[in-house]
Design a protein around this nucleic acid. Structure first.
Lengths: 329, 329
DNA sequence: TTGAAAGCGCTAACAT
DNA sequence: ATGTTAGCGCTTTCAA
């Protein structure tokens, strides 16, 4: 029988006689025929694939985000093509090229801020791009799904203050390639200000979101502890919070008895540590889902132009790393 | 100019006059031309892509493994197409189909044992398959890259014995879909036997490699602690070891002072916990690299038939969760 | 309801 | 050194 018929039983089985349909299906089974997604893609000029660019596949939050992306893609009948930029800016651009050459319908870009240097490529990209865990600062506006970082850290200090802490420090994230570092610091300053606590630069240290730099930042904080008299610290990531706890431990300070630590992310590891981490949870899976839903919509509508930052709710997960200060702070 | 010329400047630039080459390149830049990888794939009947089937992308070891896979693929000019089986057997089979339809040159399959029910699909698959972190038990022999699990756990108990522990328990992994659980238990029994310690079934509990089941397994172990008098436990994964530590902590036992715990994997989290985890390190990245090298070789040789289990070296990473028992055990 | 034919965007063999 | 042509394996008119 003709290739056209085979194609029909695969794609629009209702158009074909039940009997021939069965014959075709039998042959497919018998020959273990695997229709070429490549040829199909070329023919229909569509691959039902969305591209995903992540800064680093080993980042602990990636798995949580991917879970949502996978789920929503599957629901929309989309596959996902992954590109790991390995924390290198030029690799991210390579990723865009790679994905375009593979004719994905659109791209989800993650975590790193999309600044004006992306504009030239974004302007000619021709397919929709949506952002997750970050937002765009260049002149090309892009839809973005994330938590409200400044509000989140504001809430974090509010929480700490409500437990009697006033001398709270901050371990923030990298301010260059990553918008969240800056935003979270803003939230911290806003929080202090709201509670009438004067901001002191010696209360904040910067890391790169990873364990080691969290440890080091905490050590630097401890060097000025005599004058600072901090009782708590907010970290811009769980990993840094865990590093800070480890540092405190190595200096003979018990968490939370002697010092409180608040994380950010609520990764799987947050409940594995001793003490378990009190942290600001980001809804990673939901962010992933929403991002693909938006992207799928744009692909269906054949639009490239959409924008707006959609804030998804964060929440504080209370575990064991923060204690309420009794009476006097 | 003709499409053929464009194709040539892209693929065999040496065959084209410098001047036309420049003109073509100029046009490519100007038009932001993105050659279709789809059309190319169809034309050359090759995609330079290898398929990767993982049981769960959120598994903590996945990132470490992927790092090696990515590196080696990149070196060989291969892309990787990822399929997440989400810990469901039927999803793994779907993955095979998906990858075949996308005409990958070969497949790397991870972690779950490849038992006889894979034989029917493996026999007709037509492309090379190599295993990482697992091996094949069915009649289809496949090349496999992994640590020697029985030797590794044997070494683990030897290590514990050398620190004065004799009453050492085991938290093993799922024995059904995952070969390593069984292998590691064998290593444990062999270790005990070698040191003349009688095996007792009440010394071993089973989990599923995750934190929670590690916690629960430890709790069950503790229920018989009065008669067992264990001083140490080996876990079949870092996550379970961390769960066990947490359980011990909740029962007022300090690690390593009151009880020693040995992990397996050496994931990134192993050095983040308090106490930092002493563990058997698996060379995940190297396993990933070797697997793709083997696969690439098979693709180049156009063979499907290869086999053999290649053991990569494990090692013990000493940190803080095991203490040497002084004098009497 | 099925088949024949053209075309998707490339590459490769052949011709110039 | 470049252009022409056919064909990769599908889908999709269009015709029967």
């Amino acid at each position: 029988m003709s290739p056209a018929t085979v194609s029909r039983v695969l794609n629009k089985p209702e158009l074909v006689e039940p009997e021939t349909k069965e014959r075709v299906r039998g042959a497919i089974k018998a020959l273990d025929f695997q229709p070429s997604a490549i040829a199909r893609g070329l023919s229909v000029q569509r691959t039902d694939t969305i591209g995903l660019v992540v800064p680093g596949i080993t980042d602990l939050f990636f798995g949580e985000l991917y879970r949502g992306i996978e789920r929503a893609s599957h629901e929309s009948g989309m596959k996902v093509l992954l590109f790991d930029a390995q924390h290198a800016r030029h690799r991210a651009f390579e990723g865009f090229t790679f994905l375009r050459q593979h004719r994905v319908g659109g791209i989800i870009f993650t975590s790193k801020v999309v600044s004006e240097d992306y504009d030239p490529v974004l302007e000619r990209i021709g397919i929709p791009v949506v952002l997750a865990l970050t937002e765009a600062t260049g002149r090309t506006a892009l839809p973005a799904f994330k938590v409200d970082d400044v509000k989140a850290v504001f809430d974090a200090v509010a929480y700490l203050v409500s437990r009697g802490h006033r001398r709270v420090g901050m371990i923030t994230g990298d301010m260059s390639d990553d918008l969240t570092g800056d935003l979270r610091l803003q939230g911290y300053r806003a929080g202090l200000e709201h509670y009438g606590i004067p901001y002191q630069s010696s209360w904040v240290e910067t890391g790169d979101y990873r364990f080691t730099t969290g440890y080091q930042a905490m050590r630097r904080l401890l060097e000025h502890q005599e004058q600072n008299q901090l009782t708590a610290v907010c970290a811009a990531s769980d990993e840094m919070a865990i590093g800070a706890i480890r540092c405190l431990h190595d200096h003979g300070l018990k968490v939370p008895d002697d010092f409180s630590v608040l994380g950010f992310d609520d990764l799987g590891v947050a409940h594995m540590t001793v003490p378990a981490l009190t942290t600001i949870a980001q809804p990673f899976a939901e962010i992933g889902e929403r991002a693909v839903q938006q992207l799928v919509q744009m692909i269906a509508d054949d639009t490239i132009h959409a924008s707006g930052t959609y804030y998804l709710p964060h929440r504080i997960v209370e575990r064991e790393s923060v204690r309420a200060l009794s009476d006097l702070s």
